[in-house]
Amino acid sequence: MRKIVVIFVFFSVILSCVSSCSKRTSVESTKKIEYADSVSQADIERRISQVSDEKIKSSLFDEIPCEKKYNRIVVNIKQSVYKIDEKHIECTVTNQNKGYGFWFCWLVFLEQETQTGWIPVEFKPGYLDANDDYYAFCAILDNPTIEYSTQVMIDTEKAFYEGQLKEGKYRLKIYVGKEIHYAEFEIQD
């Protein structure tokens, strides 16, 4: 009787271990990711800066006019100081020209202040495609009397900034229409 029990327990443990191992292998095998062709930050920014006048002055909706001048755009950083391990750095973009939709670039760039001026903080945009459409249209339908506002952000994990950010002064570089806007903030430990 004792032998049977010992053998049973032994096999149960072995069976469980084998099953656990096969499960782990299976889960790992689903994690292989094939990204699109590698693309540099410079390639992406070049493409963004080449957006056509035609596009940024055309509304996506008949009932909402599109901003033509882009001279009343305001950007506001959500916090002036962020912790070094902050996951999201957010900024609102508003067109103070009420009822006018506008095109903005949802991909935001980061620059750091140094003794020689502002320099770009490089990231590896592994999940981005050079040919992605980086512009989106901001407008609230059925509400023509208000200022339209949206939010852009940097996800420090997805943009592979994590670990690169140190204490210091930074600014977001935001394309709205063809204009560049900056929103400054500080990172503290």
């Binding site: 949802w106 989106a136 407008a139 506002s149």
Partner: peptide
Amino acid sequence: FDLNNDGSVETWN
């Protein structure tokens, strides 16, 4: 999309 989480849809593609 509601990118700014204010309950209204303001961003379109």
